[in-house]
Amino acid sequence: MWKLYVAALPANGWNWIAVWRRNYLAWKKVALASILGNLADPLIYLFGLGAGLGMMVGRVDGVSYIAFLSAGMVATSAMTASTFETIYATFARMRAQRTWEAILHTQVTIGDIVLGELAWAATKASLAGTGIGVVAATLGYTEWVSLLYALPVIALTGLAFASLAMIVTALAPSYEYFIFYQTLVITPMLFLSGAVFPVNQLPGAFQHVTRILPLAHSIDVIRPIMLGSPLVHVGLHIGALCCYAVVPFFLSTALLRRRLMP
């Protein structure tokens, strides 16, 4: 069994690129619609909440509410873009479209496919997060150079959430099960991670939960970068995001091997 698991791991450091390039080619054909689709939702949140609530809330942590919210929305859009890519689009490639079946008949392994899919989801997350960031920078809520510094963190956030979602994809019998992950994990995470309001507004017990959430770690790095405030515990936050990216990768590869190669 162990030997078979090892054989399912990535064969080398570059096989995944072929999988990434396949997805990129497919995406290029629908790029405009995809970008607009990924940006629309967080932008509606940003202007809807930012303009509406911003009037009532005034300033948060010394900045305007919309500037506070924009940093949260950058991380959130990376989270949702990469989660949705991994649960819906990846699941379709695995099942209905039989894309993975074709790939597995070549010298590419399951681990290579998973790595390629994660990298692709992280790419889409980076585009979505950067898109919101560009809007924020254009409106003067952040500096352009800060956005550049935030980019690697946005990509890492995408990778971590893709990796987590890959476990769900590996276990889900059908599309219907993804709604549980959305409503029970992703949506609560938005409110518990300080994306729309500061974490210190939460009851004490919830604040403990926040400390382990990947979105909170992401926001704790992206927001100070974008707002120009001091970064604290940056090693801890990046380390946590790396764990969320790496550990589920190995777990989902093992689960998918069991599922696809009985």
Binding site: N15, I17, A18, V19, R21, R22, L25, A26, K29, Q97, R98, T99, E101, A102, I103, T106, Q107, V108
Partner: peptide
Amino acid sequence: NLDLEFTVRENLLVFGRY
């Protein structure tokens, strides 16, 4: 299990990369 949204040539190109 061809890629339906790709052209004939693109299918071969993508598969060769694997």
